[in-house]
Design a protein around this nucleic acid. Structure first.
Lengths: 230, 230
DNA sequence: GGCGGCAAATGACTTATGTCACACTCGGAA
DNA sequence: TTCCGAGTGTGACATAAGTCATTTGCCGCC
């Protein structure tokens, strides 16, 4: 069904401004693909063939060290796109990408994208905004890795999760952690055990309340201060 | 003198494709400013007013920790631009920027840039490529900080310097280091002393030959292997 | 209702990195 | 030449973070 493809495209920052006709054409050329959790979409260094629109699920872009440790560069969810960088600068994929959960994507050929950009300058502008945002986050990550310790990085991660999926309750913001400590570690640049200890520490200091995989941030401002957020 | 302004603009990736007339108009509206070494162009978090084109010298964009340690996000030299991100996504400056040496820049108002983009889609495309490249490097930096140790990060830094300003000699690639160990530390995410030791180590292992602030990389490939470069 | 397996917690230990202190080198200015 | 200051080198030490091994807890499934 072409219909939900169109809807999926329209949800993205990149294509939200396209008219119905162009969307339809694009949707026709877009390939639907499904990936199971941890299945790899593409590998860093490969020649890039196109862009991925996430219809459902989530994808992480990451790098791996020789000993197998992963560092996540960014995670994108439904409505976002992956692999814009190599599509726009004609290089290889800068990171490896894998499904963070079972995921459905639309694949759009690089050439289709490039033609589209020439005909619809709005897409180029939208892409520019997307990349600018990603660059901001990337700089943030660099700062965190270099200048903050693990506890602070975890605090920042939790604050981000709270903003993304947290629910206010009478005792504070409640979060259902969908990630394992392992996954969190890969995002904040650490390892499982250290994340586990950092959690214990935050809880002990009263900055968070942990109940299994659900947790509560009693006071966002206090946690932000601890995180050294500006 | 408007003439050298035009030349300076034409040297950039962003404006190289503009015709003489548009360049002239842009040059007229561009403000020339000079900064001494370590003078600050703008501070992270400030409302962004415009874009900087580096005419001469170099500028570093960085973040600082509470205890004053700096982490450089990127360094740009003559012919490059600084602060595209906030100009294109209308936010605040993501990092603080300071002159890495005595520097001359052209300041272009954000609005001028935005108008220019609407009238000249090529600029938008060029900007896209610039940001894509920057994102690549930023991901590289994240990987290095998270998954490589200081010795490897230093090796990567030296390889990059070799490519930028190295000269081939009969004994290998020769580099004149213009940065102090302090500056290098801020770029690779470490501190002066540790960089100093890392240098000693690389030299001891025969990966580099040091003669004061000039050094030689006898075998680029070997150093690359050590750096864990793909 | 018990079994199996994955993830979390935790103690014990190692290590890379950062901190502090101090001595040394070098080049420019007077 | 001598002095000065900035930058470098290096030993001694502190510590956050990573590694390893083991236990505990939880949850789904047979």
């Amino acid at each position: 069904m072409t219909l939900d493809k169109i809807a999926a495209l329209k949800r993205t920052k990149l294509f939200e401004e396209l008219d119905e006709n162009t969307l339809r054409v694009l949707a026709d050329r877009a390939l639907e693909r499904r990936f199971q959790k941890d299945e790899v979409l593409f590998v860093a260094g490969e020649e890039a063939r196109g862009l991925y629109v996430i219809v459902e699920g989530a994808v992480r872009a990451f790098r791996v060290s020789l000993d197998g440790r992963e560092q996540v560069i960014h995670v994108e969810r439904a409505g976002a796109t992956i692999a814009e960088v190599p599509v726009f600068d004609d290089g290889t994929y800068p990171s490896t990408a894998a499904a963070e959960e079972d995921t459905t994507v639309l694949f759009i050929d690089k050439r289709d994208m490039q033609h589209l950009c020439l005909e619809h300058p709005k897409i180029t502008l939208a892409a520019l905004r997307v990349l600018a945002g990603r660059l901001r986050r990337c700089a943030e990550l660099v700062e965190a890795l270099s200048l903050r310790e693990v506890g602070q990085r975890l605090a920042r991660f939790l604050l981000a999760e709270a903003r993304r999926s947290g629910a206010p309750t009478e005792h504070g913001i409640s979060i259902n952690l969908s990630q394992t400590n392992q996954q969190i570690a890969a995002r904040i640049g650490s390892v499982r055990e250290v994340v586990s200890r950092a959690f214990t520490r935050l809880q002990h200091d009263g900055l968070i309340i942990v109940e299994g995989r659900r947790l509560i941030i009693p006071d966002e401002a206090v946690l932000e201060t601890f995180a050294g957020q500006r």
